[in-house]
């Protein structure tokens, strides 16, 4: 199935929303594993998002301009004796996409027909 240009799939929306949540907690940028944990907690899932699925979605979001990425300063991982992290940041376009997705979801829930209660 081909996707419409600019259309976000549920995982991409979830990633952008997780980025907004992380920012609200004071983390302006995040790495892949941290994001996978945040997504897992949000969905109440026991399994983390698959590597391929997660990093392919991040790559798409970056190509769409909704995320920005940079490698952290090499001095930090060297000091902490670990591999360097690729840090992602939600762009203004990403924030707008989240706002739009939330508006659409709210609109869809309003349009849902009411159930009649028994008299």
């Amino acid at each position: 199935m081909r996707r419409k240009p600019g259309h976000l799939v549920p995982l991409e929306i979830a990633i952008c929303e997780a980025a907004v949540d992380l920012r609200a907690r004071g983390e302006k940028s995040f790495h892949g594993y941290e994001l996978a944990k945040t997504l897992g907690r949000g969905a109440g899932a026991r399994l983390l998002t698959a590597h391929g699925t997660l990093y392919r979605a991040l790559s798409r979001l970056e190509a769409m301009g909704l995320l920005d990425s940079r490698w952290e300063d090499p001095a930090i991982p060297a000091r902490e004796n670990r591999p360097g992290r690729r840090l992602y940041t939600l762009t203004a376009a990403g924030e707008a996409a989240v706002a739009e997705a939330r508006r659409t979801a709210a609109h869809a829930s309003r349009k849902r027909p009411r159930r009649w209660a028994p008299a």
Partner: peptide
């Protein structure tokens, strides 16, 4: 986690 991501890889 790795196996489920193979098609996307």
């Amino acid at each position: 986690r790795a196996m489920l991501g193979v098609p996307d890889d």
